[in-house]
Design a protein around this nucleic acid. Structure first.
Lengths: 223, 223
DNA sequence: TTGCGCTGTGATATAATTGTAATATATTTG
DNA sequence: CAAATATATTACAATTATATCACAGCGCAA
């Protein structure tokens, strides 16, 4: 099982060391050197765990953690400078699953990562689909768009889930009726209306997620 | 399951070593010694993974990687010279799935190759048709020409797909009407107009893909 | 049962594609 | 070479596809 780690720190040397050390262990790694980059990579790529430095230029690690927590339960281990004040560290790492004070022992880090990954295995990643600033939870059947909860009807949810899990793939109306309605026998144009209502809820003025392939059907794309 | 590797490096000794080592492991190999050759072989042959040196005479490995990425998600592992500057390596290997710094351990290389191949296994992309610098995706119903996305109407797409999947085979207008229109009963010359519009979008001044067989019909060729 | 939200239908509006017909150009044939 | 035949090109009209809307029926929950 491949585990993907996002390493976030503004110190190239620390990043390099972690990268090397974790890749030796079989992890697939990606790095970010500031908060913005971290959020971007978190959104685009699929990671299983995040190592996040508290002190970052721009958006701080603490803030990054909070922002990620609005949409995801991904394991986060925060890295902090040593401090006599335990409370302060607690505050800075609020929302994280664990933290380590620098300088830390890589053996300990790996052990904690393993722990967290074992603990959260199967819980989060499997039920959540995340594309750009759209998060769907299959189990809870909830949708979060731009950090805000959106209410979709059952059909709308099923349609969006089918489309989003097959990005780019064009579904003709017949496909959708067969896959979602199962035994439908009415007017095929009913699909249009559902798409319309779905778009009203998740797309702005112009389609942002649900697109029309003229003469064929509909598909999901994030551009 | 046979795995085909394209090895790209300008150092004959490295190529020779990799070739031997990978063939021992059961891989089928092919080699290229510069960027142009790499792209050519990538286009002509079917490979499952590419090992790509960053430093190449002419088109650099970095560029080759970018060009390939415009049309394909094939796993690419890049080989770089050692550098203290991790950032630099990151930049040079952008778009690759993984990279190794020379000199590298072949055991590690094989492990990473295996990893990547397992990860991308099953996504064999049988919904893609690729000829020269033209890529069609049946599922997404998209067309990419010279790295740029082209918009085709439903009929244009169907015609091109039919022609491209039967390279060289001449279809008379009646055939096309029957196969694509199914139940057409109008003017047969309508096909000409569709071909015209298709050509306008994918051929330049002179036909490059869609040719006329005089007195018979139309066919696809890549010369 | 009543009310409310979800779904499906049909009518209308809008948009894009497709077909037609006229003309120009090219190729073959006698 | 000229006539006959085939293809290319163009502009526009006709057709087809999608978007949008309002309303009615249905079912579920209060």
């Amino acid at each position: 099982m491949v585990r993907r780690v996002l390493i976030v720190d503004d110190e190239p040397l620390i990043v390099k060391g972690l990268k090397f050390s974790l890749e030796q262990e079989g992890y697939v790694t990606d790095c970010a050197y500031n908060g913005e980059e971290a959020l971007e990579k978190f959104n685009s790529g699929k990671f299983d765990i995040i190592l996040l430095d508290v002190m970052l230029p721009g958006i701080s690690g603490t803030e990054v953690c909070h922002i990620i927590r609005q949409t995801s339960m991904i394991p986060i281990i925060m890295l902090t400078a040593k401090s006599a004040d335990e409370d302060k560290i607690e505050g800075l790492t609020e929302g994280a699953d664990d933290y380590l004070t620098k300088p830390f022992n890589t053996v300990e880090l790996k052990a904690r990562m393993k722990n967290l990954l074992r603990r959260t295995k199967g819980e989060t990643m499997d039920n959540q689909v995340k594309v750009k600033d759209l998060v769907m939870d299959k189990e809870k059947r909830t949708v979060i768009l731009r950090g805000e909860s959106i209410e979709l009807t059952a059909k709308e949810f099923d349609i969006l889930l089918l489309l989003i899990t097959n990005p780019g793939k064009v579904f003709r109306r017949e496909d959708l009726l067969e896959l979602i309605w199962k035994d439908y026998s009415g007017d095929i144009r009913t699909v249009d209306v559902h798409i319309r209502r779905l778009r009203q809820k998740i797309d702005g003025d112009k389609p942002e997620y649900v697109y029309t392939k003229w003469g064929v059907g509909y598909y999901f794309a994030e551009n």
